[in-house]
Design a protein around this nucleic acid. Structure first.
Lengths: 319, 319
DNA sequence: TTGTAAGCGTTATCAC
DNA sequence: GTGATAACGCTTACAA
């Protein structure tokens, strides 16, 4: 490939002039400008962007950490991120972690190595201290409500949302409520558990760990939940299900097993994924695409901000 | 941030020695080695990876072009790609195109600019010639059965698969068969259309463009299809649906409308997404994660290869 | 308006 | 074993 030096020679100008033309900085006489463009054409020149990166100390690359993309929750976040990346002339580096700490650390490492200008962590696994250590190397933005880390974030207040949803079910007469969640740990999960315990306490309801189902991510996990519930002596009469995927699985499975919804079991899903509308599932809508867009903007703008997004209960047929 | 030069000074050695230690090339005396490591610790040093990229002419970055990630088809491909990327010490640059040509071209441009070492195009939009123009700049791998482009590929023979599926339905007594597809153009779609027309010809069946439904991607699109079918004078008795998402939407909608499946309408989905199992949908399984893995390997290995993957009909309750 | 030359932080080729 | 020093290809003071 031709370099800027070659162009300079071909066009009979200096490399500076070439650079100026290429980035249209300041004025360059029309004839030299033309000569440069001709040289570009003739040599099928293109910048070596790595040289630019080195010289500028920036890469127009933003890292995105998420456990996996084959789930609407992350896929929709990613959609929003990608949208803003495009509009702002950035590219995304996709870092799939499967919730493994070492991979998240690798992503942080990329920030330190200046391979990416900022890092967006959609679902954090490693300790707060590790994040903090890397803060000096560039903006890190989180998708959780975290006061201890000095980083920007866009998040849902899962404590409040969960608490309100539980109250809603309680008002509808449910005294025995369980919930399904993806993983037990993680900031959002812990907020939800706190809400659950506080709710139970408020109404003097017993805590039963058998009513909490974790590892619930995909449609097929709904089946496991239903099977489990059918074996229970005192099954819950309502379930908060943190993904409509799982909610859809539960509803489908209940239909097969002739468990009436909401009669025998009430369901509130999360995210308002398309399938929830399709299957008439009551759900809590989370503006994931918007959140993705905001996360991206926070990553490039750098100034610290913490944005709580609001969610909306969409009442349909499963409560 | 400290540089290799600083380390050299701190450790009292040359930059060459530092580089050698850092990349453990050849032998370096134990004491100098130690001195370097101490300097690294003391200064919290980390490589500027952009300098490495420039110097080596490689970035350990592979570009991935796909229209969007919020669909199981692409999300699963991506999963496979990410898995191999991790194992081979590469990162993926995620380029979402929404099927827009200019964005695909931008991705090709990154290859020319040496920002990525190779490019994987999961769903091509731009012309074959444009791809070919960029072939000199690095490996490009495709996810389609394309003989004209001299690039590696991993693909499903959609012509054969479609034809066989149509035959299968025909043997079951269906004479009026339609299909649902994501987009009309694109290599895979055209292969499918050819198969459809050839099948029709073989059995002297009439071609009716009203039996082809495009823009079918998500669950909710299934509803549109059903609505449309209910208006038809001569509705199809069977449908090939190129995504289980849409198939699930169709099945759900038919249940609501009391259209019996497979009695009034037979359905064959595609991909064997989890929802297909859940809803007992007959489908054609495509090993998407494996395909993703293979695509990645082709991208880094460079030598030309074209791999056709085999699919499997999974008979369940919708035919 | 244009050019010279010094970075940017590595790796790699030579000598010694 | 070790160290100068020249790439790598671009940007940007600073001069002219």
């Amino acid at each position: 490939m031709a370099t800027i030096k070659d162009l300079a020679k071909m066009a009979g100008v200096s490399v500076t002039t070439v650079s100026r033309v290429l980035n249209n900085h300041s004025y360059v006489s029309e004839e030299k400008r033309k000569a440069v463009f001709e040289a570009v054409k003739a040599s099928n020149y293109d910048k070596n962007i790595n040289a630019v990166h080195l010289s500028k100390g920036k890469t127009q690359l933003i890292g995105v950490v998420l456990p996996f993309a084959d789930h609407p929750y992350f896929a929709l976040l990613l959609k929003g991120l990608a949208k803003q990346a495009l509009e702002n002339n950035y590219k995304l580096v996709f870092i799939q972690t499967d919730y493994r700490k070492e991979r998240e650390i690798e992503a942080l490492h990329m920030l330190k190595q200046k391979q990416i200008d900022a890092l967006i962590i959609c679902s954090r696994t490693c300790e707060a201290e590790v994040i903090e250590e890397h803060l000096p190397f560039g903006p890190i933005v989180l998708c959780e409500n975290n006061k201890e880390i000095e980083a920007s974030s866009t998040y849902v207040n899962h404590y409040n949302v969960f608490f309100d949803a539980l109250e809603y079910l309680y008002q509808k007469g449910h005294k025995r409520i369980g919930y399904c969640i993806a993983r037990k740990f993680g900031a959002n999960s812990r907020d939800r558990e706190r809400a659950y315990r506080d709710f139970l306490k408020k109404y003097h309801l017993p805590y039963d760990s058998g009513c909490i189902f974790d590892q619930c991510l995909h449609v097929e996990d709904g089946e496991k939940v239903v099977n489990h519930i059918m074996e229970m002596d005192e099954p819950p009469s309502a379930l908060l299900v943190t993904s409509d995927q799982v909610a859809a699985g539960i509803v489908t499975c209940c239909q097969k097993r002739h468990i009436s919804i909401p009669g025998d079991l009430a369901i509130i899903g999360f995210n308002n994924e398309p399938i929830a509308k399709m299957m008439n599932i009551t759900t809590i809508e989370i503006p994931l695409v918007d959140m993705g867009e905001n996360l991206f903007l926070q990553a490039v703008n750098d100034d610290l901000s913490n944005k709580e997004v609001s969610v909306q209960l969409i009442e349909r047929g499963t409560v």
